[in-house]
């Protein structure tokens, strides 16, 4: 693939992603008073992250056993409110160590 084709792909990707972010953030000026819509917007990010994580997390390492070990470690540490980076790296480290043993 030549450099110009590659650049075209990246440009299309970047413009699409930017417009998705920019349009609602920039053009929407009214305050929403509907309690249902505000509640929906409050719950949505948690719902999106949860739906993205499950069941994909069990496929993230290419091996369900090491992925499950990493998932359990992440769940426990996240439940204990450890910082993002600690949870993320500990999950990967646990899966890596499990891979060495299995």
């Amino acid at each position: 693939m030549n450099h110009w084709t590659l650049l075209l792909y990246i440009a299309v990707m970047a413009v699409t992603t930017y417009l998705i972010r920019m349009i609602p953030f920039t053009l929407f000026r009214r305050q929403i008073h509907s309690n249902f819509v505000r509640s929906l917007l409050y719950y949505l990010p948690y719902a999106v992250l949860s739906a993205m994580t499950f069941p994909s997390i069990f496929y993230a390492t290419g091996d369900p056993i090491t992925a499950t070990v990493g998932t359990v470690v992440a769940l426990v540490l996240a439940y204990c409110r450890l910082p993002l980076i600690v949870v993320a790296l500990a999950a990967a480290a646990a899966a890596w160590i499990a891979g060495l043993i299995v």
Partner: peptide
């Protein structure tokens, strides 16, 4: 391969607390 978990670990750290 193990680093594939980093992203999801972050997601869990955001939603669990």
């Amino acid at each position: 391969a193990a680093m594939g978990l980093v992203l999801y670990g972050m997601f869990l750290a955001i939603i669990l607390p």
